[in-house]
Amino acid sequence: MEWIVGNVKGKRRYDSSGRVEQARRNRDAILQAAERQLVESGYAGATIAAIAAEAGVSVETIYKAFGGKAGLVRALYERGLAGAGPVPAYERSDAMRERESDPMTVMREWGLLTAEVASLVTPIRLLMRSAAVTDQEMATLLDDIDGERLQRMRHHARYLKDRGYLREGVSVDEATDILWVCSSAELYELLVLKRGWSLSRFAQYVTHYMVSSLLPGRHHEGPLQTAPS
């Protein structure tokens, strides 16, 4: 009996950290392979089998984790929304709003975050747009993420209204639409991908557009400096 009790007391607790880390590495490898193949081959051309082979995992692993190609696209888009920093962009944005009392600073930070996120999500957003023409699952996903972005922009617009930052005559709906345009993949596509603007120039343009459209005149008496592309 003493041996049994002693053996039970001395039993080691199972450590799952290794499996969690392996799952994280698998996920990163899958998303990296998926992004490359989806961008290069298009939504219809990329296959789960090819993505699995490149990532070094089984097809079943991808289906269990993401549910298929549409799930992979959604995951890539959400990864892009987090931005490039260790803290997700939306968390940085909300934290900045709470600590800042100067609307010009808020706009500048939003301009920088918009450029950062747009550089990551626009290729995936354009992939969705192209695939949605013939694929109903992609069309539904595109509608979903557009709806989520609209809600986020309305959240920002209400913040501006509640703080008293909006120029007189600008409604929450109008502010929402302006922020919606600024955060669109289409604006980034036109200015950065097609016209070759740098990220810094794009960020300053977005800031200037928001300031001149939303804030009282005292906030935009002179033009913002624009960095060369």
Rank of each mutant, 00 (worst) to 15 (best):
R79L: 00
L81Q: 08
G83C: 08
G83Y: 02
A84M: 09
G85F: 13
G85A: 15
V87H: 10
P88F: 02
A89N: 06
E91M: 11
D94F: 02
D94K: 10
M96W: 11
M96G: 07
R99A: 03
S101V: 07
S101R: 06
D102F: 09
P103S: 05
P103F: 05
T105G: 06
T105L: 14
T105M: 05
V106H: 03
V106R: 03
V106C: 01
M107F: 15
R108S: 06
R108N: 06
W110D: 14
G111R: 04
L112V: 11
L112Y: 13
L113K: 08
T114Q: 11
A115T: 07
A115K: 05
A118W: 04
S119Q: 14
L120I: 04
V121L: 12
P123T: 00
I124S: 01
I124M: 02
L126W: 02
R129C: 07
S130V: 07
A131R: 01
V133Q: 10
V133T: 08
V133P: 01
T134Y: 01
E137L: 02
E137V: 08
E137M: 00
E137K: 04
E137R: 03
M138S: 03
M138T: 00
M138L: 04
A139R: 12
A139Q: 10
A139D: 12
T140M: 07
T140R: 14
T140F: 10
L141S: 09
L141I: 07
L142N: 10
D143F: 14
D144E: 15
D144L: 14
I145F: 15
R149E: 15
R149W: 08
L150S: 08
M153G: 03
R154H: 14
R154V: 08
H155T: 12
H156M: 13
A157E: 13
R158T: 13
R158Y: 05
Y159E: 11
Y159S: 09
R163T: 02
R163V: 01
R163W: 06
R163A: 01
G164N: 02
G164H: 00
G164P: 01
Y165I: 05
R167I: 03
G169V: 09
G169F: 03
V170Q: 12
S171E: 15
S171H: 15
D173H: 09
D173Q: 11
A175L: 09
I178G: 08
I178S: 11
L179Q: 13
L179Y: 14
L179S: 07
W180C: 10
W180M: 13
W180R: 11
V181P: 10
C182W: 06
C182N: 15
S184G: 10
E186K: 07
E186M: 02
E189K: 11
L191E: 02
L191Q: 04
V192A: 01
V192R: 02
R195G: 00
